[in-house]
């Protein structure tokens, strides 16, 4: 029974990270950009929640969504000129943006944590037999599942989704065929903003304190998951995000209490082993022979 409990908790955390990972994967897909500043969407959203503590949920949720999607679109503008730059240059640019936003947050709210709360009812738990399940666990799994399905339908059933996959597949050719790359990239950023909003709202019950580094930590873990899963396609990237969240929770539960401080070492060790065994990604098919 204890392990079932661990498993459920792990699936919930995995769902959250898969949302962030999907956002990172979408942006990487359409512009080969690893957005280190993805976490700052969550951070800025977190401060928005802090600033509006006590307001009606019906105002706060749309407001947070608006702020996060707006920031995502601003980022898109900032990265637009670098679309054909070297990967390292783009990466450092996103780091600069991340650093900039964290510096602004630190200046405005200091490094000290600020408490945010929304949907506080979600933190409550009910028991089934020996299982103690918090509502947020169920909601995380449900929202995660619905959004992943929704994005999947969007990509496969809509015009812009199809064009997005074409751009992800070969941007230059897609552009030459008249696909409006700008519109596709803007849509991807907006979508990743929506995903970040959902992830933030579900993270709040577990991490009710926002600091300037709040988002960076989440984004780095999700990013590692994305690379471990396989960046080239969305599904492996998302599964990778899920796996790292799942492993994070599982390893934490399984480690003896005194050893839990070494959680990071165990996780990172696993990451290294997976990368050595499957450098192309855990869930990625064997690479096709390179066509010259």
């Amino acid at each position: 029974m204890r392990y079932v409990q661990y498993f459920i908790d792990a699936v919930a955390l995995g769902s959250l990270y898969s949302l962030v990972a999907l956002g990172i994967g979408l942006i990487f897909g359409v512009m080969r950009l690893i957005n280190l500043a993805q976490g700052e969407l969550l951070m800025v959203g977190g401060y928005t929640l802090f600033a509006t503590n006590g307001w009606s949920v019906f105002v706060r949720v749309p407001l947070v969504l608006l702020v996060i999607v707006g920031l995502a679109l601003l980022m898109e503008r900032a990265f637009r000129r670098l679309r054909s730059a070297a990967p390292a240059t783009m990466l450092v640019m996103t780091f600069a943006v991340s650093f900039l936003l964290r510096s602004i947050a630190q200046k405005r709210w200091s490094a000290q944590g600020k408490s945010m709360n929304i949907f506080s009812g979600l933190s409550h738990a009910f028991t089934v037999g020996q299982l103690r399940i918090r509502y947020v666990t169920l909601v995380s799994i449900a929202v995660g599942g619905v959004l992943l399905l929704g994005v999947n339908l969007f990509l496969n059933r809509t015009d812009i989704g199809l064009q997005m996959r074409a751009v992800a597949s070969d941007r230059r050719i897609a552009q030459a065929l008249g696909v409006r790359t700008n519109r596709v990239v803007v849509t991807a950023f907006a979508l990743s903003g929506v995903l970040a909003t959902a992830a933030l709202l579900l993270f709040v019950p577990q991490r009710p304190t926002v600091t300037p580094d709040f988002g960076l930590q989440i984004a780095i873990v999700a990013l590692i998951g994305v690379v471990v899963g396989g960046m080239d396609r969305l599904a492996p990237a998302t599964f990778g995000g899920f796996s790292i969240g799942f492993a994070n929770s599982m390893v934490f539960s399984l480690l003896p209490t005194g050893q839990r401080v070494f959680l990071d070492s165990v996780l990172y060790g696993l990451v290294i082993i997976v990368l050595l065994l499957r450098p192309q990604g855990l869930f990625q098919r064997e690479r096709q022979t390179t066509r010259v």
Partner: peptide, 28 residues
Amino acid sequence: ALVRLNGLSAGIATFAVLGITRNVLRNW
């Protein structure tokens, strides 16, 4: 162990080394 890796895999694996180093120095 790691110089056989390329590109992003190499980046993340070396990042993992950084994470482990920090975690160990901080807790052991």
